[in-house]
Amino acid sequence: MPGITNTTSPPEWLMQPLLLEPYLRPMPWGGNRLPHWLGLSEPGQPIGEAWLVSDHHLHTSRILNAPDTSQTLRTLMARWPKAVAGYLAPRFPLLIKIIDARENLSVQVHPDDASAQHWAPQQGGKTEAWLVLDTTAEGKIYLGLRPGITKEVLTRELALDALPLCLNTYFPRIGECYYVPAGTVHALGAGVSVLEVQQTSDATFRLYDWGRLDPQGKPRPLHIEAALAVLREHTPEAGLQTPVRLNSDCELLVNTPFFTLYRLNVAAQQTVAAPAIIVPLHSSANLTQGETNITIPAKHAALLPALAGEVQLRTAKSDEVILITWPLDRATPSE
């Protein structure tokens, strides 16, 4: 994991909102909607994910409005972690992405922080949540084991190619939020697109891949031993969440130990406290801090560094904006 250095004072531009460049990640089950949604060029291959905010070794987000265009979230976190994340984090704690599933994703399990020390020590745990952006009438979410299903039953049904029958099945609707705590077996179904908020990790253990073959006609590797080792049989907190209306303009979608999601209904100016991440869903949004003003295109992300203090949020018309925050009490002893 990258070390922390903090030998110079943060620059003044870290006191303003930062617009991040999306990264398109090809996946065999992906579709063709993400480039269109984000106003990006078509890459000529299926795109399964758009990483909006990332400080992962597979990709680190570029800061579009930094004075130096080479600045990335990794370079900022390596030099000024507390100014960015609000505490001395070794890397930015969250990875934010949009997933577009043209086909079923694999049935998979992610480790928690404790089990990741053995099974994915370079990655860490991965708890996540999904906000449904779009779905077909046939779209499904597979999430958690049905009552009475144990690891032993799951292993037997896996050998019979019947594993999906062991899973709870949801028929999602646009705007719903699903919680996927680490250790919960799950799969996003064909035709469903979500905004995913997760811990910064790519630790994924595949149990079942629907008989899918790669371009060479070979199945993708499965990770059955690791998946069963980190799987939790009972995750009652997982599944569809009931929004809690905090006021006329704000709903709490899900609150986890690692992040909290809010849905803002922005009809006029709102004040947002840093650190946070802002994602407007349908149209652009404007962020103002002092004399600085930036525009966030729809489905892009802006990071409000901890140094930014309070920022004014506006939209051109009444619209939904997702606000993502994280706990600041995870400081390291060296702080």
Rank of each mutant, 00 (worst) to 15 (best):
E196G: 04
D202E: 14
G239L: 10
G191K: 02
N265M: 14
L195F: 14
V230L: 02
T256G: 01
V197M: 13
A190N: 10
A226Y: 04
G175D: 05
T184P: 02
I174C: 11
G189F: 07
R245K: 14
A190F: 08
D214T: 09
P215K: 06
H186T: 09
G217L: 12
L253A: 00
E251F: 13
T204I: 09
N265R: 11
C177D: 05
D214E: 15
E176V: 15
R206F: 14
S201H: 12
F259M: 03
D209M: 06
A268Q: 15
G189I: 13
V197Q: 01
N255T: 14
F171P: 04
S193D: 12
I174T: 11
T204G: 04
V254L: 09
L231H: 01
Y178S: 04
A182G: 02
Q241K: 06
I174E: 14
G183D: 04
Q216D: 09
H223R: 05
V244T: 10
T260C: 10
R263Q: 13
Q198T: 03
L264W: 06
A268V: 05
Y178E: 05
G217R: 05
L240S: 04
V192R: 03
V266S: 00
A203M: 15
V266G: 00
P257N: 07
L252R: 12
P181M: 09
V254H: 00
D249I: 14
L213C: 11
S248M: 14
H234M: 13
T184Y: 08
F258Q: 01
Y178A: 01
V230N: 07
N247E: 09
A238G: 07
E225T: 06
T235Y: 01
D214V: 14
Y179E: 11
P172E: 06
Q199T: 09
E251D: 06
R232V: 00
A267P: 00
R173A: 03
A268K: 15
L261G: 02
G217S: 09
V266A: 01
V180A: 02
A190T: 11
E251S: 06
Q216V: 02
A229M: 13
Y179D: 04
R232Q: 12
Y208P: 03
P243W: 15
Y208R: 07
E237C: 05
V180T: 06
G189M: 08
Q241Y: 07
G189Q: 05
S201K: 03
I224L: 11
T204M: 08
